[in-house]
Design a protein around this nucleic acid. Structure first.
Length: 205
DNA sequence: ATGCCGATGTCCT
DNA sequence: GGACATCGGCATC
């Protein structure tokens, strides 16, 4: 890795405040590399899922199933699950093992490997939909549920800090997408976006 | 610009 | 059988 780039380590993920970590992930670079294929993008949208008391979380009420087992994993684990039967959604696990805090990565600005992203998604044009939305970005980076449980300190999937910091007024905190059924937790401001990025997903689609 | 729909793995009733 | 941390296509306004 080039000087000036710092891979996030266990200390970044092993913290209690999942909202703060979700906010700090904005601007970080998500990298996948295997089989000689390297691809990366800058994170511009995240959503925190705050454990057993969060009605929108797969772990609400302590629910624990085969699918969600990796949500209970060690800090710095990948949790990838299939949503609506076809989309693979990538989450970063934080806090201690068995405390099911997860952060859904919802949008990236592509950096490296755009040609590989196009090939993986079957798209012909690198428009904003390439890495806009959690299903799209996971597909572009080649992540599937086979990567669930992967260690984010590994060489295959990891997150890098290149020093970029967004000014406070460029970050917004909003309610999460697609969690209307989470009743009183549906409106919690657990979504973080980089204002003005054309890759940030929209509420209506 | 907005809305409806189908695809469909996993979990729940 | 129904709900769901989604997406793209097509209909309609």
């Amino acid at each position: 890795m080039s000087p000036g780039l710092k891979k996030l380590d266990i200390r970044f993920y092993d913290r209690r405040n999942v909202l703060q970590i979700a906010r700090e992930l904005l601007g970080k670079i998500l990298v996948t590399q295997w089989d000689g294929i390297h691809s990366s993008g800058r994170i511009v949208e995240t959503e925190a899922y705050a454990g057993v008391n969060d009605r929108a979380s797969h772990a609400f009420g302590g629910r624990r199933t085969a699918r969600s087992e990796d949500l209970y994993g060690a800090p710095g684990t990948a949790y990838v699950y299939i949503c609506y039967g076809m989309h693979h959604l990538f989450n970063v696990i934080t806090n201690k093992k068995n405390i099911p805090h997860g952060i859904l990565i919802r949008a990236l600005e592509p950096l490296e490997g755009v040609d590989h992203m196009l090939h993986r998604t079957g798209k012909t044009v690198a428009d904003y939909t390439l890495t806009k939305g959690p299903g799209n970005l996971a597909r572009a980076l080649g992540m599937t549920k086979l990567h669930s449980g992967a260690n984010l300190i590994s060489e295959e999937i990891f997150i890098v800090d290149d020093g970029l910091r967004y000014p406070k007024d460029q970050i917004a905190m909003t309610s999460r997408i697609g969690v209307e059924s989470a009743r009183e937790d549906a409106e919690l401001p657990y979504r973080f976006i980089v204002k003005g990025s054309p890759y940030v997903s929209s509420r209506k689609s």
